[in-house]
Every structure is written in structure tokens, then in C-alpha cells.
Design a protein around this nucleic acid. Structure first.
Lengths: 218, 218, 218, 218
DNA sequence: GATGAATGAGGATTCATTCAT
DNA sequence: TATGAATGAATCCTCATTCAT
């Protein structure tokens, strides 16, 4: 109830086709899935929270699983969207003068996303391991598309001499791990702690830079 | 069936009191919980895989939840055990000459644990968010005990001038994040990739060190 | 199936809201509960006799106990209803010239009730002792309301000199015992015996009168 | 726990053959059956209360039903025993000068029995209706033996002109009903009320006498 | 005789899904 | 489109009973 994640903009492709009830169903599903997990959530519970009849859910989503997919698929897409954007690698030469700015942009941007859509991110993280049919497209997109793009970017920076010559796979891991570690700690694990966001972001950037850039002096 | 995690040594306190059947129930439960999640696993499924009657499960574990707890509780305990060991902080002055050796020891040790008990770790990670009664003791032990110990250690190194003067909370996050990121990538997310463990460990250590030590020259 | 107690008029308050199936469930439950007792009756048995799916029972009654309560509560209410009717004690001065007519009216009236609703009365008698939460309201209503009313009536007759001066508690016991003893013998214990109802009623009335009225000449 | 009904003397025929454990099983069974009813009582519950292993019950009683029978059968026998005693009808001419003394003797005697063995009487009353195989011998003994004896006695008194000329069946009903009504009110329904036993007994006797004796002057 | 681990049929209840309205 | 009564398979769990020790 209470807060309302306007996660609906994640589903923009057909958001306009949605009835009011369908939106309420999705909202309710996101909220309960994220609290109790997909398996432990009953469709009648969703119906009740959404204020619709039990049957109504199945008018819009053939099965309970369909409802889950309709939440996860676009989340996954949007989560990696900025990275696989066609013009993403342009940033290298244009928008961002250096890796530091680049990292900062990524972190801030993904933090906003996480903050706004944490319930869906949580569902995503929880359910991915249990649904092989979700895993497949995920690996295909992330491990292939994202990885490929990032590798390109890193190699460019390496050629420019800004990043040390370690395998790009490792560079990606260090960076992703540090960023995700921060974001998950911030919004998922200890959301109620007192976070000095500005400061933590800077520290995290410096931590990463020290590890991957050729020279780093504060 | 198939592979057999000898996770039973996690429960060493009463392993000897266990019936043969009880052991088979635990093994089956660990395997299926880790594959499909607690909620999506039925007790009849566990019974079948364990080769016992369904009623037998409930002779040993009052409820399905009890069975889960009997798996998670000791896992949690053992997972953080090396860190809260009484003589753990002795390592500072004695066994390990420097942070590097210290980090290496931790990583290698926790990797072994993860490798051996990945199914239980997976259950732990998946179920913790959904069971507030599990969350509580976890936070109490980890966030308090572990955190406290690590803070002590870090401050000691900081006084010695080996670690930079950032908040120990952040130092812990950077380090933990990098280690866990590596271990989870290694054994949970991409276990089938070709990993050069030796090399990855060294790189990870160097990455962390660059970020947290006062002087780091490769 | 077989005979059909139209006990549904006991539940007249919401009889109209009931589905056809819900009615069949109640009928089946009354029949089997009365034959085998609540505990020994399975919901699958009720469903089968009612010709509905087992799940349907739980759509209408949250639990098996709820089903029992929905039978017992109104039975209890109706059983004592005529006695706690607002205008019941009016009978003293108006409708009934004397105790004899009064007793006759009560007996005939309660016999009709018992005859019509014996299965429910049986359930009531059998289950009351085992369900403290049923006992409470029963004692509160019967022991208080009924008792209070009857005491008033008896005292009135005593003042008129028609009933001997024993404690009204004892008068009530003698009378109730004789009436209930007759009704239970008639419809519960030996229903198949040849009963000359008219004659038995008169004898019972005379038996009571001899014991409680000041002068009794046949 | 607490109080201990020494109902075992009801089972005197083989009380001596009983092991200590068997006795404890019977005691536990009587207590729980009487509290919750036969069907709602589990053998494991009985075993626990008796302090024996679950299997032990079945060494002594082939089935749970057997255990019930071993409680009910002798209770039934003893309950009617004084009435069908061979020399019972002797009382007419010898011990008791008149019906009044006879009634008093019966009441006092059965009150003692009821007080001592109420849990078993309760089990008896509750379970008889649900076990046709118990009903049969009951009807055979009570309806035949007891009834036959009492009819003889009543007819004797009627010949002597002490009891009015109503059908003996009705006389029996009035009397039994009044006595049982008192005893059950006294020990089963309102055991915790303040009972003036002496007084209530006398009133009950007088109530019965007024109804069945030819002349009754207080 | 006594145990208690093991059983598997059966218990109450929940659930995703269907379909007539 | 929306409903919600109805379903029956599946769920967790209990139970009386058995049997090797």
C-alpha cells in the first residue's frame, strides 16, 4: 500500500494499454513478490491487495509465472539499458573526459534506478536463480552484450594508458563488484543506516580507481 | 542424489546423534532447497529424494521451517566463525606480517568454505531476506560481532600506517565486497567458466590493496 | 442424503445469501457430525456427501471448526429463544391460566423443536463439552438469561401460592430435568419405541405438578 | 496429572495382571479421553502423559479402540451393577422399609460412584452414541436386565399400594430422569456450584415421591 | 516387556486456474 | 472486462500402527 513505486515506467511499452486494474495488479504483485518471494506469494493475496477479483489476474496474465515474467523481463532490460545503449560508447570521447567522470555517471545513474525500483531489483535477484528460462536471456544479454561493450570501453582506456593492463574480465569484475556492493548495501541490506551518499560515492570511485587506473593520486 | 555435499560437518555438534535417514533427509533438503528455493520445495519431494516416507521428515523436524533452520543456522555460524574466533586478531602481530598475507589467508580460507558448502550458502543467501526471524540473529552476529572485530583489526593497521584513514566501515565494505564478489562470481554465478584461481586471487588482493593501503607498488 | 432436516430455517438470518452448494454442505455436515461426532468426521466425507469439491467447503467456512460453529451457534440461540423472548413472562398472566397449561405449552413447543432439529441438538450436546469457546457463551446465555427469566416466573407463581416454597433453582432443575428427560428419551435414546405422545405428555406434566405445585389432585 | 481417579478398581478382574505402565496408560487415557473425546485424542498424547513409549500402548491394547473398550465396558458394567445384583430385589422386603429409603439408598450410592468415576462416566456418555458395537450390549443389559428388574420392583410396590398405577416404563423414566438429572447437574454440569448435598437429595426424593407415590405428605 | 524410528494413508487446508454469469 | 464460486491437485502435517532392537 503506502508508497507507490512508479515502476510502471519500466513497462512503458504497453503501459498505456493497461487498465487501471491491471496496473494495480502489477503494483501489488511487485510489492508482495519482493516481500515474500514469488513462490510464497499467492495469487489471491495479490488480488486482495490489488482490490480486484481473483479471476481478474488471469484475464491479464495467463499464469502466475506470466505475471512474474512481466515484471522481471523489463526490469532486466532497463537495468542494463544504459550500458547497451547504442551510443553508449560514444561517451568515451565526448561526454566524459576521463574514467573518473565516467564511473561517477554510472554510479549516480544506477543508484537512482536502484532507489526507485528496489522492489523489482530484489525480485530480479531472488528469482533469477530459480527460473532457468529467465537465466538464459539474462546471460545472453548481460554476459554477452554488456560484457562485450564494457570490454570495448576498457580496452580503449587501456590503449589510452589510463587503465592498467589486466584482463578486462577482471577489471569489469572489480568495478561491477564495487559498484553493486555499494548500491546493494545502500538500498537493500542497510537502507536504514545513515549514509553520506556524496562522500560514499567519492570514496567508492577512488577505491576503484586506485585499483584499476595506472596512476592515482588523491 | 548425484553429488554429495558433505555439509554434514557443519552440523558436527550432533552429527553423531543422527540416524542414517535423518542425514539423508538433510542432504536431500539442502540439494533441493538450493535448486528451487525453500517455498517451491515440497516435503514430499524431499522425502522421495531422501528415500524415506514423508512422515519420517516430521519425526525429525517438527515443521518444514524447522528443517530449513537446521540447515541455515549452523551455516551462518560457520560462515563467520573464522572471523569471530577468539584468537583471530592475534594474527595481526603474529602469523601475518602484513595485510597482504592476511587478506590472502582470508580469501583462500573462505573460498574453500564456499566451494565445499555452496549449496548451503546459496540457501542462506536466498532465504535470509524472507525470514525475519533469521535476519535478526544474522544482523546481531554479523553486523555486531564481525563488524566489531574487523574494525579493531583495521584500526590497528591504520595506527601502524598500513591502511589509509578512511572510515573503517567503508574499508570493510570495499574489502568484503571485493572478496565476496570474487567468490560468488567464482562459485555461484559463473562456476563453469575457466578460472585461473591463483592469478585471480592475486589480482583481487592487489585490487583491494591499491584501494586501502597507504603505499602500494606492484 | 436420505432424509433432509430442514434445519436451514435455524439459520434464517442469512439463509438467503447461501449458495445452493453451501446449503448442501451444511446439510451434509449436520448429518455426519450428528452420526459420528465432529472429530471423527472428515471434510472429504462432508464434501462427498454434499456433492461438492473439498475446496468448496473452505470457500464458505474458513476452517472445519467454523463449520461446526455455524451449526451450533444458531441452534443454541434457537433452543433457548422461546424462553428468553421479551414477552415470554407475559404468558403468566395472560395466555396461560395456570402452570399446567404453561408447562404443556413449553413441552409441546420444545418437542416440536427437538423432533425437527434432533441432529443439531445431538451435535450440540456432544460437542459442547469439548469446546470451551462454545461453553462460555452457552453458560452466559443459559445459566444467566434463561435462569433469570425462569426464576422470575417461578417466584410469581410462588407468590400466587401455586408453587411450593423450594429454592427456585431446585424447581427449575426438577422441571427441566423431567422435560428434557422425556424429550431425549423420546427422540434421541429410544426414538423407535412406540410412544403414546399425548399420554406421555400428560403424565409428565402431572409428575412435575405433583412435585412442585401446592395442591395437586388428579 | 494432579488428581488420580482410582478407577482401576473398576477393572478389578485383571487389575493385578497389569504392569505399572499399563496402569499409567489407562489412567492417562481416561483423563484425556474425558477431556477431549476419543476421536480427538491421539495415542502419542496418551503415551506422553503416561510416560511410556508410543509402541507400549499397542503391546497392551491391540488398537486404540481396544483401549477405549477396556475403559467403557467395565464402567458400563459397574454403573448398573448394583441394580442387577442377584439379591437386589430382596431389598424390597428386607433392608428398605419403603420406597423413600430405597430411593435414598440408590441416590447416595450412585452419587458416590459418579463422584469417584466421573471421567469414565463422561467418556461413557460421550462415546456410546458413536460406537454401535458399544450401543448393542448397552441396550441389551440396561434396557433388558435393568428394566426388567426395576419393573419387578415397581410392580411389587404398586401391589402394595405404595406407587400409583402408571405404566412402570413411565415410573422408571420419571425416577431415573430425576436422579440422573441431579447427579449430572451436581458432578458434570455445575460441579463448581455450592451444593447442599443433604438438602438437595432430600428435595429430589420428595419430588419423585410426590409424583409416583400414592400418598405423599411432607 | 519396552522402545521409538519408521511408515504411509489420511487429515485439514491452500492454491492456481476455470468458467458461467 | 470483470467477477467470484467452484474445482481438485497438491501442500504440510498427524496419526495409528508396525517392527527391529
Amino acid at each position: 500500500m503506502s508508497e507507490q513505486y512508479d515502476f510502471l515506467d519500466l513497462l512503458s511499452e504497453n503501459k498505456d494499454n493497461m487498465t487501471e486494474k491491471q496496473k494495480r495488479i502489477l503494483e501489488a504483485a511487485v510489492e508482495i513478490f519482493s516481500e515474500k518471494g514469488y513462490s510464497a506469494t499467492s495469487t489471491s493475496e495479490i488480488a486482495k491487495k490489488a482490490g480486484v477479483a481473483e479471476g481478474t489476474i488471469f484475464r491479464h496474465y495467463k499464469t502466475k509465472k506470466d505475471l512474474l515474467l512481466s515484471i522481471i523481463a523489463p526490469t532486466m532490460a532497463k537495468f542494463i539499458a544504459p550500458i547497451i545503449m547504442k551510443d553508449f560508447y560514444k561517451v568515451l570521447s565526448s561526454d566524459y573526459q576521463n574514467i573518473e567522470d565516467f564511473l561517477r555517471a554510472i554510479i549516480v545513474n544506477r543508484m537512482q534506478f536502484a532507489k526507485k525500483h528496489m522492489p523489482m531489483v530484489k525480485i530480479f535477484l531472488q528469482e533469477i536463480p530459480f527460473h532457468p528460462e529467465l537465466k538464459e536471456p539474462f546471460k545472453e544479454h548481460v554476459a554477452n552484450q554488456v560484457f562485450e561493450r564494457l570490454t570495448l570501453i576498457i580496452e580503449t582506456y587501456q590503449k589510452k594508458g589510463e587503465i592498467i593492463n589486466l584482463p578486462s574480465k577482471s577489471i569489469i569484475r572489480f568495478t561491477a563488484t564495487s559498484i553493486l556492493g555499494f548500491i546493494l548495501a545502500r538500498y537493500l541490506i542497510f537502507p536504514e543506516a545513515n549514509w553520506e551518499d556524496e562522500q560514499e560515492i567519492e570514496m567508492t570511485i577512488q577505491f576503484i580507481l586506485h585499483g584499476i587506473s595506472t596512476s592515482s593520486l588523491d
